[in-house]
Amino acid sequence: MTTKKNTTKSTSKSSSTKASPRRRAVKSAMYRPSDDDLIAFYRQMLLIRRFEEKAGQMYGMGLIGGFCHLYIGQEAVVTGVQTALKDGDKVISGYREHGHLLAVGADPKAVMAELTGRSGGVSQGKGGSMHMFDPARGFYGGHGIVGAQVALGTGLGFANKYRKTDNVSVAYFGDGAANQGQVYESFNMARIWNLPVIYIIENNQYAMGTSVSRSSSQVELFRRGESFNIEGKQVDGMNVLAVRGAMEEAVKICREGKGPAILEMKTYRYRGHSMSDPAKYRSKEEVKKMRAEHDPIDQVKEMILKAGVMDEAALKDVDKEMKSIISDAAAFAQECPEPELSELYTDVMA
């Protein structure tokens, strides 16, 4: 693998020293956050982190069924992306989408209650971890078939263009989905019709247990749009400012009718693919190093402290507040009743 060394300061480093200079990746400028931005990023990422930790615990206690894919480690991606969007923009994701729902503003109680299969869940308990929707906030799922959200998200962008709005759509998918054929069918159509779609490749470097270098002939996934004439950028997905900076540019391109755009977010999931994955395919040291050196939340914490926006005590209070929100959500998700049996037959057809 030609993974570059992630640094929070660098804004101009080439992504791969092996690539020829002519094909050097172009970097976007870092986002310059206000004090409020920094606090918002911190709160958002911490909320997702605490939510996922709790979900992991509850899964271990048998309160959550089926598959459960945690987002821990990748929080900067969805936080940087979502904060660059506006009302009317549409978002779609795969099955690792708890964080995406929280980032669009869904109630953590409803998200957690969906995980426990209760009537108060975002999908009234009928969707589960992988199938959650919140169209009122522009979130269209939550799709369990790897890669399906890429074609669907392209359709969301098509609808924006059809209706002559300047809204964009965002399709999140992983490095695993990046090898599905329909991704390239979608790229092709999106370019032919200049659709306002931003493809966010959340490259957490493992498709289940298969590393990108074992699964991909072109490991620089941001280049995957080259033969469709779609510009791609590689982004330090552990740094929320880098993510937001790249998004600002991509959104601008799409709102001006010059979409689509591809952003490869180099990120890392700390946990296994799903709760049932012990992650034997990578070393404990690798994970440890990532956590120690590149944790997205720690990075923002440092910026906050450095800029004097908040002190340690205030940050601790934020953490307490998040823990309390999540603990309420967990309580709700266990107290809320299961769906009525009559719900079995509803929502099949209109």
């Binding site: 999908s123 929707f133 009122a136 929502d347 057809m349």
Partner: peptide
């Protein structure tokens, strides 16, 4: 999708 979304989509 209609079913999985509890009728939302």
């Amino acid at each position: 999708t209609r079913y999985m979304s509890g009728g939302l989509v």
